[in-house]
Design a protein around this nucleic acid. Structure first.
Lengths: 212, 212
DNA sequence: GAGTAAGTTTACCGGTGAGTAAGTTACTCG
DNA sequence: CGAGTAACTTACTCACCGGTAAACTTACTC
């Protein structure tokens, strides 16, 4: 199954061949079909296992002692560490090309949602502890969670260009980039386009940017 | 070619069939092979066209008048608008599963780099204009650019869950989330884990988080 | 040491899809 | 009108891949 994840991550679901996976694993193809029903079953098994691992790593880090903000940091750190050194797992979870059949598409969005839920929960906790005047709703926490996960994903590419950066340092950078601003925003500060040109389209709402 | 982009985006490169593209376009397969040499050629043509469009939209918005920060905002807004309502283009540019053969892999990373370069340039300008004590290097601007692009990518998913949010509002949210913090950071504020536990591994460097 | 159950492989089938050869239509020009 | 040709299609080949039937190996029982 490790081999399967490697191949799926490298080639993508549809370009991956069961023959190649089986050969890499040192067994023959029918064995794969014996244990896991089909190529789809094989993929789903990989998906579930890696989803579980990632969520476990996240929860494990985040349930350590500490304030809510600290737990968010620990969770993100774990998330980042996982993504960074289980690149194949992450590729299976999050970088599969779309259109893999309905059953699988549903399952993969479910898995992604599970990951996002973990992040979102901590984000919300962290924000609410942050106090200030801002009251953030589900949509806002979800927004931040999406942004963080997407950034983390993209930053794994960045890390390949700067190999001397550890996942921990990258987490720090990211927290610095995002969280310092969150404090301000919760305190009432709002970013608006300097000069206020074209301001007409943007007022209203209860979002992060509008949380004053 | 519009059809090709739609199919490539929907199915991914390897699962997309030239037959399907041709049929959707109302022509027959050999025509495709007449104009564009192969499936790979077809894909590369799509890639180049959409890369050009995105970069053009970005540059167009960013070369309007205004301060550097305003231009960054306009550029991101254009970028975000493009990604949000040319989802297929973006999927071709940025969501293709890996392992499409060496030539194509090289070309796709080149295209992504071109996009990132645009963002990075504006980020650097915006940051340097921001003044303060921070001096950010290439790696830092690159970091922010990666984070922004990744966040924008992921936020297209978020937008599907909250359809009442316009790309402009999402851009505002994102700018608010990131840029308010950047001001602080350039002013010398640094995020550190509250309580300072496990501080040993993180000091040093010249990154965003360490730009004090 | 025959019988048997579990585990594994070889050798195949059927379908699909990239790429192509040969033919057809329709239009131009002498 | 008919040769030439540009534009396009039908109908095919060939390779690859998901999936499977049947045979083979091993190990253990009686």
């Amino acid at each position: 199954m490790d081999c399967a994840i490697r191949v799926f991550a490298q080639r993508g679901y549809s370009a991956a061949s069961v023959d190649e996976i089986a050969e890499l694993a040192g067994v023959s193809k029918p064995l794969v079909y014996l244990y896991l029903e089909s190529k789809e079953g094989l993929f789903l098994a990989c998906l579930h296992r890696e989803e579980g691992r990632l969520v476990a790593a996240f929860q494990n880090a985040a349930t350590e002692v500490g304030t809510s903000e600290l737990r968010l940091w620990a969770g993100l750190r774990a998330f980042f560490g996982f993504v960074s050194d289980h690149k194949d797992s992450w590729a299976v979870l999050h970088r599969q090309a779309p259109g893999l059949g309905d059953a699988m598409a549903a399952e993969i969005t479910r898995a992604r949602r599970a990951v996002l839920t973990e992040v979102r929960t901590l984000v919300r906790e962290g924000i609410e502890l942050g106090g200030g005047s801002g009251h953030l709703g589900d949509a806002d926490a979800d927004f931040v969670a999406h942004a963080l996960v997407g950034a983390a994903d993209s930053l794994t590419d960045w890390m390949e260009r700067y190999p001397e950066e550890s996942p921990d340092r990258v987490t720090l950078r990211l927290m610095g980039m995002v969280w310092v601003g969150m404090r301000q925003i919760l305190g009432g500060e709002v970013w608006t386009p300097p000069g206020g040109l074209e301001g007409g389209a943007f007022e209203g709402g209860t979002g992060v940017a509008g949380a004053a």
